[in-house]
Computed example of a mutant assay.
Amino acid sequence: MTESPGDTTTAESGAGAAPGAGIDGPLAFQDPAYREAVVDLLGAIAYGEISAFERLSEDGRLAPTLEDKVAIGSMATAEFAHVGPLLDRMSELGADPYAAMAPFRSAIDLFHEHTAPSDWYEGLIKAFVGDGLANDFYREIAAYLDTGTRDLILASLEDSGHSRFVIDRVRSAIAADPRLGGRLALWGRRLMGEALTQAQRVAAERDALSALLAGGVDRPGLDLAAISRMFTRLTERHAERMAELGLDS
Rank of each mutant, 00 (worst) to 15 (best):
residue 225 A to N: 06
residue 232 T to A: 12
residue 187 W to M: 08
residue 151 D to P: 02
residue 199 A to T: 02
residue 110 L to K: 08
residue 55 R to K: 13
residue 238 H to C: 03
residue 69 K to T: 06
residue 161 G to P: 09
residue 209 L to C: 09
residue 175 A to M: 13
residue 193 G to E: 06
residue 47 Y to C: 01
residue 101 M to C: 08
residue 192 M to P: 00
residue 85 P to F: 11
residue 142 A to R: 07
residue 188 G to N: 09
residue 3 E to C: 06
residue 191 L to H: 10
residue 86 L to C: 03
residue 168 D to M: 02
residue 62 L to R: 15
residue 186 L to R: 15
residue 196 L to H: 07
residue 29 F to I: 02
residue 72 I to R: 05
residue 175 A to G: 09
residue 221 G to A: 04
residue 177 D to A: 14
residue 197 T to G: 11
residue 42 L to R: 01
residue 130 G to F: 13
residue 152 L to M: 08
residue 124 L to Y: 07
residue 134 A to W: 11
residue 233 R to T: 11
residue 22 G to M: 08
residue 11 A to S: 13
residue 45 I to L: 06
residue 5 P to T: 09
residue 22 G to K: 05
residue 34 Y to T: 05
residue 153 I to N: 05
residue 2 T to R: 13
residue 227 I to H: 02
residue 121 Y to I: 04
residue 245 L to E: 11
residue 207 D to E: 15
residue 28 A to K: 11
residue 96 D to R: 01
residue 51 S to C: 06
residue 52 A to W: 10
residue 8 T to Q: 15
residue 156 S to Q: 07
residue 225 A to V: 11
residue 201 R to T: 15
residue 170 V to Q: 06
residue 223 D to I: 00
residue 145 L to G: 03
residue 145 L to N: 07
residue 146 D to A: 14
residue 194 E to D: 08
residue 109 D to I: 00
residue 217 V to D: 02
residue 248 D to C: 08
residue 175 A to E: 15
residue 195 A to D: 01
residue 9 T to E: 14
residue 149 T to D: 06
residue 166 V to L: 07
residue 1 M to V: 10
residue 102 A to S: 08
residue 200 Q to C: 00
residue 167 I to F: 09
residue 197 T to F: 13
residue 62 L to I: 00
residue 112 H to R: 12
residue 135 N to A: 14
residue 230 M to L: 11
residue 13 S to M: 12
residue 55 R to M: 11
residue 51 S to A: 14
residue 46 A to I: 01
residue 146 D to Q: 11
residue 148 G to F: 10
residue 84 G to Q: 12
residue 1 M to K: 09
residue 56 L to W: 14
residue 16 G to V: 08
residue 80 F to D: 03
residue 70 V to K: 14
residue 212 L to A: 06
residue 39 V to W: 01
residue 104 F to L: 03
residue 20 G to T: 05
residue 148 G to K: 15
residue 184 L to R: 13
residue 178 P to K: 13
residue 114 H to I: 00
residue 75 M to F: 09
residue 135 N to D: 07
residue 78 A to P: 01
residue 129 V to K: 04
residue 6 G to T: 05
residue 226 A to C: 02
residue 143 A to V: 07
residue 140 E to Y: 13
residue 108 I to H: 05
residue 192 M to I: 02
residue 243 A to H: 14
residue 48 G to A: 12
residue 236 E to T: 06
residue 40 D to R: 10
residue 93 L to C: 04
residue 156 S to D: 05
residue 74 S to L: 14
residue 85 P to K: 09
